[in-house]
Design a protein around this nucleic acid. Structure first.
Length: 855
RNA sequence: GGCGGCUUGGCGGAAUUGGUAGACGCGCUCGACUCAAAAUCGAGUUCUAACGAGUGUGGGUUCGAGUCCCACAGCCGCUACCA
């Protein structure tokens, strides 16, 4: 379509307004210390999850959340808030490095090019960001503070008494040894079984394994020395403090389940003929009398020492078989239980019976103690295993007293204890408590709370990430001085993985080996590191003294537990980014660097946008919609408006190009309320618009209803209904003989956050004709609606007979029941349905409905 | 298997505390304008000839249920032997 055929000239005015906002810095947000900062203004911090700048550019999912936050930000700004609405790039990541492997080009170059493309696309959508606050996690000045925060973790331990992180210098003062301190740091080194991919040349998080495997990479399990972050110390706080946040309940639940708190007991079992004991965790201490065997994880450290000579071969080969499988594979085998007897026995502490010790891969080394007591009668997995290997099944809980002769399946519900000595007759809850008392008084076990959450495996062997600010000397790690930050990775000649778990950085010998004989840590941080604190940096992005100034941190926080007023992003980050960022924030809180205990007060997840075929957008399906195409065909305002009109923000919804045409048509109607084309095809301000008082009360009512509803709907993030109200308002203007200037500008103001370019352009055109001052619409204040304008004197009253609609009557708004009833009964339609009946009851809702119950 | 979400016309979706089901938009039909078309404007559009029926299915509470309660089904997402 040529520009002349466009329903309104967005190709001319959209770039024009974008340029003006940029040169005038319209959306600059002054913070403490900045020129024009007004500390008396209330703050509003609205944040998007920043994008990973991939080579393929923005997809239509990005502008969904970004437009929502943009509308909120512009709305709050019009209401007098000092709005912080920033954007940046999560620019470390494996794809840039994969591209470097293919082309030999330094990842910094591709990243810079990708960022430039993203920035161009974002600017073309007219978002009201303060571009002076733009950040990229790969920027050396950003890396500097990411590393600095890592050192805060490294130099802290978790004080269980105070229930908070404290500097390790406290421990030094108490005379703790270096080794003792290294054991309690929040960032520590440990040997861990990890997912190692030889061809990617890095370890992967559990949740990344499937993705890369499906792309044809191999992933195996092997133990490696890794950096870990002690997030588990925060398990309880991460659960409890969710309560203070306005997050979707589903996301809270997801995090709670991920942290996975369970209550029970630890119990120690004596190994026959050995000094050692095996400790297990159980949520069912009440079933201890029914524990007929034990199972150790194949990697359990005791396995080799307790295995008998006869069982040696089968145990070793089973261990080898398990070692090659990831946790995923173990899961795939699911119900098909496997395992091997070690030949050793333990003693059940309550009845002193010997019970065999097996190893099986249904027990995980990473959870609890890596060992279980098996109670086949009351646990599905144990039951299945016992059936398979012919192990004894002893029933100790019954749904009724007496028990059954043969169990067909495990009975896992609470019941009454049987065959359990001193517990007999007790209901499960009491039996648990009684058993824990017994275990504690006999020093065999104790009450225990267990979490599924594991410490965060924080190191990667890749190149394109933050290097650890750590050097090794004489076998010990130590922090490099903060003054030496940022520590940047050296350029490499090739980024190909070596096939060994040796980090890529170790190839840069000159960088690694220091003159004093110490060597640099060669692992790098995961991509999550940068996204754990970026929201803090936005508040003070150019500070060279601190990661955020005290003043900026104070100003952008308030009394609420979470710093950010509204955070919008996809559900895919429910348990990773959102958990990691909370963890880092709490560490910074404990150390006194931030004043709120939580980062994100209110969280909203935007729903996925599907392709026109109702399937997830993907290149292979060919159903991907490119925002650039939509902008060039319909304009940025149409794209923004369509994405908001599709349906509720949080809902999954399919793309419909016809829908884009629909909102484009709406924008054209708004345009034509004011402009009409003359003979030459030039748009001229229409004579319909007049600077007169509005005498059309219905038109005025619609305008004020629109001001009211759009404001309410923005607060509720119900953008689709706000737009529908603006469509109604536009239709009213279109049909009006005269368009009163003041009312129309109120409407334009309300439209501005949604369609900023079009509304500015129309506003400018109208202002020129009426000699009004041509200030930016984006800088005007949100209109106030007049409640009196909304009032209607007569309303349509719905008349029902026995709940069925029979008549509609115009009646005074405040008519009483007698008047309404009389009017209703006078209606012929009502008479038809009541004549042969007796009226039993009248239900009257003033101004709404009258229901006649008759039989 | 577990957890969570969803289910309303041909389509996307709207419906305070239970109170006119289908706002608004798409599509479609008809009309106006036009030599004609596109664009635009106007009218109509849940089903049914009508009585009536109707918010995934079956029950319940209520004067009244898309909305509340119970049971079930289907789709989508996440998670996966967590002791």
């Amino acid at each position: 379509m040529s520009d002349a055929r466009k329903p309104f000239p967005f190709r001319e005015f959209e770039p024009k307004w974008q340029a003006r906002w940029e040169t005038e810095k319209t959306f600059r947000t002054p913070g403490p210390g900045d020129a024009g900062f007004d500390p008396s203004k209330p703050k509003y911090y609205v944040l998007d999850m920043f994008p990973y700048p991939s080579g393929s550019g923005l997809h239509v999912g990005h502008p969904e959340g970004y437009t929502a936050t943009d509308i909120i930000g512009r709305y709050k700004r019009m209401q007098g808030f000092n709005v912080l609405h920033p954007m940046g790039y999560d620019s470390f990541g494996l794809p840039a490095e994969q591209y470097a492997i293919k082309t030999g080009q330094h990842p910094a170059l591709t990243t810079a090019a990708n960022i430039e493309n993203f920035r161009r696309q974002l600017k073309a959508l007219g978002f009201a960001y303060d571009w002076d606050r733009e950040i990229a996690t790969t920027d050396p000045q950003y890396v500097r503070w990411t590393q600095w925060i890592f050192l805060q973790l490294y130099n802290s331990y978790y004080c269980d008494q105070a229930n908070q992180a404290r500097p390790v210098t406290e421990l030094e003062a108490k005379g703790w040894s270096r080794a003792q301190i290294d054991d309690v740091r929040l960032a520590y080194v440990a040997e861990a079984a990890v997912n190692w991919s030889p061809d990617l040349g890095t370890v992967l998080a559990n949740e990344e394994v499937e993705e890369w495997r499906s792309k044809g990479h191999t992933v195996e399990r092997r133990p490696l020395r890794q950096w870990m972050l002690r997030i588990t110390k925060y398990s309880q706080r991460l659960i409890d403090e969710l309560d203070s946040l306005q997050w979707p309940e589903g996301i809270k639940l997801l995090q709670k389940n991920w942290i996975g708190r369970s209550e029970g007991a630890s119990v120690r079992f004596q190994i026959s003929n050995f000094k050692s004991q095996i400790e297990v965790f159980t949520t069912r201490p009440d079933t201890l009398f029914g524990a007929t065997y034990m199972v150790l994880a194949p990697e359990h450290p005791y396995v080799m020492s307790i295995t008998t000579a006869e069982q040696q071969d089968s145990v070793v080969s089973y261990q080898l078989a398990c070692a090659s499988k990831s946790d995923m594979d173990r899961g795939d085998l699911n119900k098909d239980k496997s395992g091997v007897f070690t030949g050793a026995f333990a003693v059940n502490p309550v009845n002193h019976k010997p019970i065999p010790i097996w190893i099986a891969d249904y027990v995980m080394m990473g959870y609890g103690t890596g060992a279980i007591m098996a109670v086949p009668a009351h646990d599905e997995r144990d039951f299945e295993f016992a059936k398979r290997f012919g192990l004894p099944i002893v029933e100790v809980v019954s749904s009724h007293t007496g028990g059954t002769s043969t169990l067909l399946e495990a009975f896992c519900e609470p019941g009454i204890a049987i065959n359990s000595g001193f517990l007999d007759g007790l209901p499960t809850a009491e039996a648990k408590a009684e058993m824990i008392n017994w275990l504690e008084s006999n020093s065999i076990g104790r009450r225990r709370v267990q979490y599924k959450l594991r410490d965060w495996l924080f190191s990667r062997q890749r190149y394109w990430g933050e290097p650890f600010p750590i050097v090794w000397k004489d076998g010990h790690h130590q922090a490099i001085p903060a003054a030496e930050l940022p520590l940047l990775a050296p350029p490499l000649e090739d980024y190909k993985p070596s096939g060994t778990p040796e980090p890529l950085l170790s190839k840069a010998r000159e960088w690694v080996e220091l003159p004093d004989g110490s060597v640099r840590e060669t692992n790098t941080m995961p991509q999550w590191a940068g996204s754990c604190w970026y929201y803090l940096r936005y508040c003070d992005p150019h500070n060279t003294e601190r990661f955020i100034s005290k003043a900026a941190e104070a100003y952008w926080s308030d009394d609420k537990p979470g710093m950010i007023d509204l955070y919008v992003g996809g559900t895919e980050h429910a348990v990773l980014h959102l958990l990691y960022a909370r963890f880092w924030h709490k560490v910074l809180f404990d150390l006194g660097h931030v004043r709120t205990p939580e980062p994100f007060q209110r969280l909203v997840n935007q729903g996925l946008i599907l392709g026109e075929d109702g399937q997830k957008m993907s290149k292979s399906r060919g159903n991907v919609v490119n925002p650039d195409d939509v902008v060039s065909e319909y304009g940025a305002d149409a794209l923004r408006l369509y994405e908001m009109f599709m349906g509720p923000l949080e809902q999954v919804k399919p793309w419909q190009m016809k829908g884009v045409e629909g909102v484009s048509r709406f924008l054209a109607r708004v345009w034509r309320v004011v402009f009409e084309q003359d003979q030459t095809g030039t748009w001229q301000v229409s004579g319909k618009i007049k600077d007169v008082a509005c005498t059309d009360t219905e038109l005025r009512r619609v305008v004020h209803e629109t001001i009211r509803k759009v404001g309410d709907d923005i607060e509720k993030l119900s953008f689709n209904t706000a737009i529908s109200q603006m469509m109604i308002c536009t239709n009213a203007f279109t049909q009006a003989e005269v368009v009163p200037l003041a009312e129309f500008i109120q409407f334009l103001t309300v439209l501005n956050p949604f369609a900023p370019h079009l509304s500015e352009e129309i506003h400018e055109g109208v202002a020129a004709v009426f000699n009004r001052q041509a200030s930016l619409l984006s800088e005007s204040t949100w209109p106030v609606y007049d409640p009196a304008a909304l009032v209607r004197n007569e309303v349509e009253l719905i008349i029902q007979v026995n709940g069925k609609l029979r008549e509609r009557l115009m009646i005074a708004k405040d008519a009483d029941e007698a008047a309404a009833t009389a009017a209703a009964l006078a209606s012929a339609k009502v008479k038809d349905h009541t004549d042969s009946k007796t009226i039993r009851k009248i239900v009257y809702i003033q101004g709404k409905l009258l229901n006649i119950v008759a039989s």
